[in-house]
């Protein structure tokens, strides 16, 4: 059975690129355009991994991660942050929120897929 990944990103082009990259590897992908939109997708659906941007309108990625981690169904779902953000403070904030990996854009699809595979199987 295909694993499901929730991808949260405000940039339509990056959403498209990620959707292509993940679906080609056989993953089911759920797309959301910001943190608020992503929270509406967390309706009990089994999600094996969450990948989120940091800087987004309406609700930023770190606030979304903190909120998602409070939901019992998604408390142990591994989370990857995919962002242009390189500030140490933000990374530490993400680590404290329970983020498993921090990937700085632009990403190589193969390396991203390796990280996704590693975290989903863990």
């Amino acid at each position: 059975m295909a694993k499901t990944i929730l991808f949260v990103e405000d940039s339509a082009s990056v959403r498209q690129v990620m959707n292509s990259t993940l679906t080609r590897e056989g993953y089911d992908v759920i797309l959301a355009c910001d943190g608020q939109d992503a929270l509406t997708k967390l309706d009990g659906t089994k999600i094996h991994l969450i990948i989120s941007d940091v800087n987004m309108p309406n609700m930023d990625g770190l606030t979304f991660v903190k909120t998602a981690k409070q939901l019992p169904a998604y408390k142990f779902t591994p989370i990857i942050m995919l962002t242009t953000e390189t500030q140490e403070e933000k990374m530490n904030e993400g680590k404290a929120a329970g983020v498993k990996a921090w990937i700085v854009k632009p990403f190589q699809p193969a390396q991203l897929l390796a990280a996704v595979s590693q975290l989903i199987q863990a």
């Binding site: 390189t86 990374m91 983020v99 990996a101 921090w102 990937i103 632009p106 190589q108 390396q111």
Partner: peptide, 9 residues
């Protein structure tokens, strides 16, 4: 452009 920077926590 061509280096992916991945940090695992």
């Amino acid at each position: 452009t061509n280096q992916t920077n991945i940090t695992f926590f």
